Computed example of a mutant assay.
Amino acid sequence: MSRNSAQRKHDLTADSAQKELVKLIQSFSYGHHLHTVFSDFVEMNALAISNSVDRALFEAREKRYLDIVGKYKREEVERFPQMLGLLVESFEQRVAVIRKETAGSLPVSGGLTDVLGETYMMLGLGNDRAGQFFTPYSVSRMMSMMLMGDVGAEVERRGFIRVHEPACGAGGMVIAAADSILAAGQNYQQTMHATCIDIDPCCVHMTYVQLSLLHIPATVVHGNALSMEVWGTWYTPAHILGGWTFKLRRRLEADLLRAAVAVKQQSEVDQAETPAVVAEAAAVAEAEASDVAVLERETSATTAAPAGREATSLAELFEQSLASGTRDRTVFDTIDQLTLF
Rank of each mutant, 00 (worst) to 15 (best):
E43Y: 09
M44I: 01
M44V: 04
N45C: 11
L47W: 02
A48D: 13
A48I: 01
I49E: 01
I49M: 01
I49G: 00
S50Q: 07
S50P: 06
N51Q: 03
N51M: 05
N51W: 01
N51G: 06
S52K: 02
S52R: 02
D54Y: 12
R55A: 04
R55Y: 07
A56Y: 06
A56W: 03
F58R: 05
E59Y: 04
E59V: 04
R61N: 05
K63V: 05
K63D: 13
Y65F: 08
D67R: 06
V69W: 05
G70V: 00
G70I: 00
G70W: 02
K71I: 06
R74D: 15
R74H: 12
E78S: 10
E78H: 05
E78P: 01
L87I: 05
L87C: 03
V88G: 05
V88E: 10
E89H: 11
R94D: 09
R94S: 08
V95E: 06
V97F: 11
R99E: 11
R99Y: 08
R99F: 11
K100A: 13
E101L: 12
E101R: 15
T102G: 04
G104K: 11
S105M: 14
S105Y: 07
V108A: 14
S109R: 13
S109V: 14
G110L: 01
G110Q: 02
G111S: 04
L112Y: 14
T113P: 02
V115C: 10
V115K: 04
V115S: 11
V115N: 10
G117V: 07
T119S: 08
T119H: 00
T119C: 09
Y120F: 15
L123W: 00
G124Q: 00
L125T: 10
L125G: 14
L125S: 09
G126W: 08
G126V: 14
N127S: 15
D128R: 13
D128L: 05
R129L: 08
A130R: 14
A130H: 10
A130L: 06
G131S: 06
Q132F: 05
F133T: 12
F133M: 07
T135Q: 10
T135Y: 11
T135I: 12
P136M: 06
Y137D: 01
S138D: 14
S138M: 05
S140N: 11
R141S: 15
M142N: 08
M142E: 08
S144N: 11
S144K: 06
M146S: 13
L147K: 13
L147F: 10
D150T: 09
D150Q: 07
D150M: 00
D150S: 13
G152T: 12
A153M: 04
E154R: 12
V155Q: 10
V155H: 09
E156H: 07
